[in-house]
Design a binder for these strands. Sequence first.
DNA 1: TTAATCACCTGAGGGC
DNA 2: TGCCCTCAGGTGATTA
Length: 271
Amino acid sequence: MPELPEVETTRRGIRKHVEKQTITKVIIRQSQLRWPIPTGLSKILSKQVIKSVSRRAKYLILSCDAGHVILHLGMSGSLRVLNANTPPEKHDHIDFIFTNGQCLRLRDPRRFGAVLFTKEEPTQHKLLKSLGPEPLSKYFSDHYLFEKSRKRQLTIKSFIMDSKIVVGVGNIYASEALFRAGIHPKRAAGKVTKEKYNLLTTAIKEVLKEAIQAGGTSLRDFTKSDGKPGYFRQSLNVYGKKGEPCPNCNKPITQSVIAQRSTYYCTQCQK
DNA sequence: TTAATCACCTGAGGGC
DNA sequence: TGCCCTCAGGTGATTA
């Protein structure tokens, strides 16, 4: 399931194959994703050169002179670069065909992903303009989180998963970062101390950096752009480890549901 | 304004 | 082996 490290891994994987390539056409097999793929996309992108592949939060942005393609991988999406003659398989919804005979292919079994197009600056698109800072940027700090959290009653886990606060912290990495920082996931965000936010900020940055270096976390659905799995799963301390001993104190890991999401934590180490 | 819940979708896995 | 049910999860929309 793609979170920020998986999206960044994908961006790095496809970038060298896609940048400076000229699109000949776009083949849409299934337009009903999270939102319908814009009609006329093939005509708009025909003969366009992809100038850059960038990322904002979990959105990938393919930029060309005509505008910007905004891609979201949703829950189960993956992008691969392969020969355009490779027969599509089930759930291969869209191909961007290039003049060099290659194509960029989106597969998304659960169809929670999205393919959108905008002529405006992508950061001003309605989906992107209200997003919080990138967690690995200098704008994401303990001071920022502390100030944003004052008087907030929601749980700290929901708080750090709110993309208006900070982008890219999904369910897996929220559990892992809170464990590293020693913060109970059900604690009210407004009750967390400045010192704990310092630990949490560091933990979020660390866990995301490590996951990017490992090529993401492969659970059920995620493979990298080369089709290989990511390896950060081997570094998870609590996620998916209900009943297993805590790596710090050996007390069994607890699972409960917070904001409709499975949450894993140690009641001994996280207060 | 804030917080909680719903809806979308399909594959995996468990129970029978 | 096959069927049925539950669970998983990102995020915008809706509701309270």
